[in-house]
Simulated assay, not measured.
Amino acid sequence: MAAGKTRIIATIVGARPQFIKLAAVNHVLRQRSGMTEVVIHTGQHYDDPMSAAFFRELDLPEPAINLGVSGGGHGRMTGRMLEAIEAALVEIKPAGVLVYGDTNSTLAGALAAAKLHLPVAHVEAGLRSFNKAMPEEINRRLADHCADLLFCPTRRAVDQLRSEGVVKGVHFTGDVMYDLARRFERPDPQVLRRLDAPAGGALVTLHRQENTDEPRRLAALAEALVALSRELPVFFPLHPRTRAALKRAGLFKALAAACRLAEPIGYIELQSVLRASRLVLTDSGGLQKEAYFARVPCVTLRDETEWPETLEGGANRVAGASPKRIRRAVKEALATRVRPKRRFGDGRAAERIVAWLEKSWRTP
């Protein structure tokens, strides 16, 4: 596969947020005649609404390789990915390996490449929540310290890496998700009708293990959302893990009676619902940023955030899982006018990333 002088870049993805980031960079890479991207999908997110649907709507080519690794505990999943990615990289012989974000797929890809002495580039480097109980925090820290090129979405991320003694190969590029978000200005009424998503309501997403796997915390969050539904219509697309957890905890029926529960929705659909909403409540790092870009106030259903830039001016409020704190944060958020500052670049992050890849990686 490594014929001629074309530089092959192996890109490792596996989860929905990575497909979105991949789209921004892939569209630029496809315009470069001297570079060929081989996308390896680990299979971490595998069903159509969480995977294939994103490739279709974001105009992404089908992955060249799908490893089909999903399920199981973190160690088992990451170990199986590591073994399978290593075998794929040995066959492909890329000039380098590109990883995104902070999932198990990110860590497995970075480790496999590093052990094969292949250069690693990490998109979204330098983020820290400082909560080591989060699997994502472990993944992002280790990926950063495996990487040769560290593409930082914010200046704060650059400073964080410097504080850890990492300065070589660090570049402030801006955020690739901002590149994509700039394409959207207004909600699409047809999308809202098709989804039966209320305009002027609250958009809710919830998927992190810390919220779904702790019954008391999940019950507190459900209580807060039912209370919110008495003030605003609530649109809640359910991650498969969240749906299963709510049913297991006996919370699903009460929540379904109060909120508009939906299947997972695509990226473009989410952008329309977001821009039609008065408020976002989420534990997603990506949606915190997207709300900021869209000037929609956000309440983060976690105890910390890796995106402190979004906290400026009250655009985002960290409320944890306490119904009382969430209620207070919602009240304050609804009274807030979000005025984003240019913390995430100028919308050309993908172009900068590809330029650095071209400059840094040569054919083996």
Rank of each mutant, 00 (worst) to 15 (best):
A3Y: 12
T6A: 14
I8N: 11
I9N: 02
P17M: 14
Q18F: 09
A23V: 02
V25M: 03
N26C: 13
N26P: 00
Q31R: 14
R32C: 12
T36P: 00
H41Q: 12
H41A: 12
T42L: 11
D47C: 06
S51L: 06
G72F: 11
G73M: 06
R80K: 14
M81D: 00
L82W: 13
L82I: 10
A84G: 05
V90P: 00
I92F: 10
K93G: 11
P94S: 15
Y100C: 12
N104S: 13
G109T: 00
L111S: 01
A112K: 00
L116R: 11
H117G: 04
V123I: 12
V123M: 04
A125G: 04
R128W: 01
S129F: 05
N131M: 05
K132M: 15
M134D: 02
E137I: 03
N139E: 06
R141V: 09
L142Y: 00
A143H: 02
D144G: 01
L150R: 02
R156A: 08
R162H: 12
G165Q: 01
G165D: 03
V166S: 04
V166F: 02
F172A: 10
D175P: 01
M177T: 09
L180Q: 04
L180P: 00
A181T: 00
R182I: 07
R186V: 10
Q190N: 11
L192R: 08
R193D: 15
R194K: 10
L195V: 04
A197L: 07
A199E: 12
G200D: 12
L203H: 05
V204W: 11
H207L: 09
Q209L: 08
E214Q: 13
E223C: 06
E223Y: 04
V226Y: 03
A227F: 03
S229H: 12
H239F: 14
T242F: 13
A245V: 03
K247T: 05
A254K: 09
L255F: 13
L255E: 13
A256T: 07
A256W: 14
A256K: 15
A257G: 15
C259P: 00
A262Q: 06
E269I: 03
Q271H: 07
V273R: 03
A276T: 02
L279M: 11
S284W: 03
L287R: 07
L287I: 14
L287P: 00
Q288C: 07
K289C: 00
E290A: 07
A291Q: 01
A291D: 01
Y292I: 12
R302V: 03
E306V: 04
E306T: 01
P308R: 11
N316S: 07
R317N: 06
V318T: 08
A321L: 04
S322P: 04
K324V: 14
R328M: 14
E332Y: 07
E332A: 13
T336D: 04
R337Y: 02
W356P: 00
L357Q: 08
K359C: 10
S360Y: 11
T363W: 11
